[in-house]
Amino acid sequence: MLAIVGTVPDLDVPVLDAPVAIKGNELLVNGRIISPDRGTPALLAAAVETALFLNEPMPHAFLVGDQGRGDGSRELYAHLATVLPSREYSTMVFHYLQPDVDWHNKVLLAIQEMAISPRLIADAGFMYAAKMSGQAPAYDLFTPDAGELAFLADETAPHPFYTRGFILHDENHAPDLIARAYAYENAASTLLVKGSVDYVANNEGVIHSVSEPVADAMEAMGGTGDTVTGMVSALIESGVPIVEAALYSVRANRMAGLMTNPNPATRVGELLPFMAEALSLAGVPQSRE
């Protein structure tokens, strides 16, 4: 089963630990409506759409309300450290959580106590914590954007705020920054770098780069990187090899954007009705051996 961990920008949301349910066009976690505007809810919705396309089970969600102060994140960290040793998930994706090295390490230790080791995917705040803790190589996939890649590539930066000025998130330098991140062991086994050009890479260098199709307005939309992470997570859970899943995901995300015909005011949730068709056009088979 795929487990998705992250936050929602609503302080009234307690720690939620439940499978995702579908009611009409709405996602429900423990009876609460989760609106897929951006962030972890957008990731969750994209994973659900991909699971539906693949006829796979719905993901399990670990969510909490947090608006950036970190109180909710710490509650969720503590919950995960307690419950994960007795759980079984084959893939886990960690998303927007306040970066906290101590709590990250406690959660990673809890994962190591699980009976079956899951594939580990990290993005956003949890990816920061993984790098800051020196534990990046424990992960199977990181999904940074260009700015996050610059942080991974800076071996001295203790926090993204302190990424050195000469390491800028210029997408033209992405292959060099990828190589630097691996040289200092600050990257997962595979990287999916999201941007105007998407890169799939490992410690040997760039494996794939994707720049088409192009929907220019997507550059101004919040959450389109979150949908990529949601798709790749569900594809990996279904058994698609990580590099192949990453390539499918960036292609499908671009196609969904093109079909949406977005403008800068378009919300990421408007991509979701096109996701199944986009996955099909990207070449994803609906059933796998």
Rank of each mutant, 00 (worst) to 15 (best):
N203Q: 15
V64W: 01
G24L: 07
M127S: 05
A220S: 14
N253F: 00
D102R: 14
A282T: 07
G283H: 07
L2Y: 04
A45P: 01
L109R: 14
P19D: 05
T7G: 10
V15I: 00
G239D: 08
L258P: 00
G24D: 10
N203E: 15
G205C: 06
V228L: 14
R180L: 15
L16M: 07
V268W: 03
D10R: 13
T143E: 07
M58A: 11
G125I: 06
A174G: 00
G70C: 11
T229C: 15
M221H: 01
G225N: 09
Q67F: 00
P19M: 06
P262N: 08
E277Y: 03
M218F: 07
D12Y: 10
Y182R: 06
A153R: 05
A252Q: 08
P57W: 04
A215P: 01
L141E: 04
S287D: 11
V193P: 06
A138M: 12
D154M: 11
Y184P: 00
G24K: 08
G72Y: 02
E270F: 09
E155H: 13
K23Q: 14
L192E: 12
V83G: 05
L281W: 11
L235F: 07
L27H: 03
F53T: 03
N25V: 09
Y139S: 03
P118L: 07
L44P: 02
A188F: 01
L258K: 13
E26F: 11
Y128N: 14
I33H: 14
I116H: 13
G6H: 08
L44F: 06
A183I: 02
G6I: 01
V200F: 11
N253A: 14
P160Y: 07
N203G: 13
G269W: 00
L11P: 05
A246Y: 04
L152E: 10
I33D: 12
M221P: 01
I34S: 04
D66M: 05
H173S: 13
A220H: 07
P285D: 11
Y139R: 04
T156Q: 15
I178N: 08
A47S: 09
A3I: 02
I207E: 14
A153P: 06
K131A: 15
Y89P: 00
D176Y: 06
L76D: 02
D154K: 09
Q67A: 09
E75K: 13
L152H: 07
V197Y: 05
G195L: 05
I33M: 12
P213G: 10
Y248T: 03
I121W: 03
D216Q: 11
R32D: 10
V64M: 03
A61F: 02
P14W: 07
L258G: 00
P57T: 12
R288P: 00
D176N: 10
I167P: 04
I207W: 08
L84M: 03
V15T: 05
D12W: 09
L141I: 02
W103F: 14
R69G: 15
A153M: 11
M218W: 05
P175F: 10
G205Q: 06
F166V: 11
A246F: 06
G134Q: 12
E26M: 11
T7P: 01
P160L: 10
L177M: 15
Y199A: 12
A217G: 02
G24T: 11
A45Q: 00
L76M: 00
Y89R: 03
D176W: 02
G31E: 04
Q286E: 15
V83K: 09
V284A: 05
L2F: 05
T40P: 06
S133W: 03
A146W: 00
D17I: 00
Q67G: 06
L76G: 03
A110C: 02
G134C: 12
